[in-house]
């Protein structure tokens, strides 16, 4: 009972701002606002980049989580702390940091430009990178937790059956931690979808190329509060629907 009141207050605290958005939504003009091409373009771009960013995070983050959970090496605690840096770094600073590395004059970016003629800033790739940078810790933390909780004796059993490290990882470890990976991917996707600060700083804003929903919301807020609310509601609805369905299906809970 002592927990119910703060629980209810907590829920209220999270839900009330949403109620505020709903209360101020311009319901009468909603249909035509929803079908504006600019809105759909931003929504499509947001979904695509969040998905690509999640795939990138899976490709890089799962092995990194495995390294942190399974391999003892000097400086592991430092590496673990570094991995969580994007969580505490203001995303705008993250965007500047990405510019300093992948920008036209950045550490890696200048080499990319000189060698391949590739410049990343102001491209859709930059959006994906910015989202992945900010969202990756969510995936890594979830997967590392799942790996630590998994029974390593299954991996030993796989080894006795002739499976090397890679096969063991793909055929035994990953299936065992699949619920953790799925939960991490869902969190990662949601964080990528809502990413704003690093994206607008590193990738800028151009409709159809780098203008994601959160960026569109921010700019709409400059001139048209109602438009901003509508965009936010769309983002909200889409993410809640997708997250709810994925959670049930993947995590089997």
């Amino acid at each position: 009972m002592a927990l119910l009141l703060p629980a209810a207050l907590g829920l209220l605290f999270l839900v009330l701002p949403l109620v505020g958005l709903l209360a101020r939504a311009p319901w009468s003009t909603l249909p035509q606002r929803l079908t504006e091409p600019a809105v759909l373009t931003a929504l499509r771009l947001s979904m695509q980049t969040a998905t690509l960013a999640t795939l990138l995070c899976l490709a890089l983050g799962v092995p990194l989580a495995w390294l942190l959970a399974r391999v003892r090496f000097p400086g592991r605690r430092v590496v673990r702390a570094l991995v969580t840096v994007p969580l505490v770094l203001p995303p705008v600073v993250g965007g500047v940091a990405l510019l300093l590395v992948f920008g036209r004059r950045g550490l890696v970016g200048s080499w990319l430009d000189a060698t391949f003629g590739i410049t990343l800033p102001f491209t859709t790739t930059a959006v994906v990178l910015a989202e992945a940078f900010v969202a990756m810790p969510f995936l890594i933390i979830a997967v590392e937790g799942a790996l630590r909780g998994a029974d390593t004796r299954y991996e030993e059993a796989a080894a006795t059956l002739g499976a090397g490290r890679w096969t063991t990882f793909t055929h035994v470890t990953l299936p065992l931690v699949a619920p953790g990976v799925a939960a991490g991917a869902v969190l990662c996707w949601a964080r990528a979808l809502g990413e704003f600060g690093a994206t607008i700083t590193f990738a800028g804003n151009y409709p159809g190329r780098t203008q994601t929903m959160p960026v569109a919301v921010y700019l709409a807020l400059e001139t048209d509060l109602e438009a901003a609310i509508v965009l936010s509601l769309i983002l909200l609805t889409v993410s809640v629907v997708i997250l709810a369905s994925l959670r049930d299906r993947w995590t089997g809970r």
């Binding site: 800033p121 102001f122 607008i200 990738a203 800028g204 804003n205 151009y206 409709p207 780098t210 203008q211 960026v215 921010y218 700019l219």
Partner: peptide, 8 residues
């Protein structure tokens, strides 16, 4: 002019 970005 086609800019590469429309800043905030």
């Amino acid at each position: 002019l086609t800019p590469v970005t429309l800043e905030r």
